[in-house]
């Protein structure tokens, strides 16, 4: 009875969008302001991650509502869905998943194209900055709301001279959804 899942392209074509340049410039302004306010690059990384997390815990519901996606069978499917549907739906780019570890709990999401960095060059004073750290926070927050605790780090960053953006996803633990009805504990 449930409607079939929709592809990232189909959703992207149907939602209201803002001008990409406005989005890119707004994000740039936020990062710039954080650098001014917090002064320390590490603090800015932390703050961007926290902002992303706060977005992620809300965004997940929109993602579920609009994509009609039901429960994923394993973390592999989850990663594929994030890359193929999630990134397409909200950023308009498709990512790929690779580098699985044998246990199937760690993988990489690779972004070849990233609208956030269209006009960005990192100055020497900001070499430690993970400019797109908001994205890792979004993914972490979103997964936490569907009972997956993850750790997400940047492995490759085009702003640091790499050939792509690579996010390393590590599933720490899956919180069971059942209520903890344990009278004897």
């Amino acid at each position: 009875m449930a409607p079939p899942p929709r592809s990232g392209d189909a959703i992207f074509a149907n939602v209201d969008r803002v001008n990409a340049e406005l989005f890119t410039l707004t994000y740039g302004a936020i990062v710039r302001q954080l650098l001014t306010d917090l002064e320390e690059v590490d603090e800015v990384n932390k703050q961007l991650d926290q902002m992303g997390y706060n977005i992620g815990i809300r965004l997940i519901d929109e993602f579920l509502a609009k994509s009609n996606i039901s429960t994923c069978v394993d973390f592999k499917e989850t990663a594929e869905v994030i890359a193929k549907v999630g990134f397409k739906m909200f950023l308009g780019v498709t990512a790929s998943v690779s580098n699985w570890d044998p246990e199937g709990t760690t993988c990489s999401i690779i972004l070849e194209d990233n609208p956030l960095v269209d006009f960005v060059e990192l100055p020497d004073t900001c070499q430690g900055l993970y400019y797109c750290n908001i994205l890792s926070g979004v993914v972490r927050g979103a997964l936490e709301m569907v009972s997956m605790k993850t750790e997400i780090t940047w492995v490759r960053d085009m702003l640091r001279g790499d050939d792509a953006f690579e996010l390393r996803l590590k599933l720490l633990k899956q919180v069971p959804e059942e209520y903890p009805y344990k009278d004897d504990e």
């Binding site: 809300r58 519901d61 929109e62 509502a65």
Partner: peptide, 20 residues
Amino acid sequence: LKHIYELYTDYVLKNPFYEM
């Protein structure tokens, strides 16, 4: 109900002054 869920994501969760 599905439609209400979408409205909730749009008009509640996206409202920056709504607390989860």
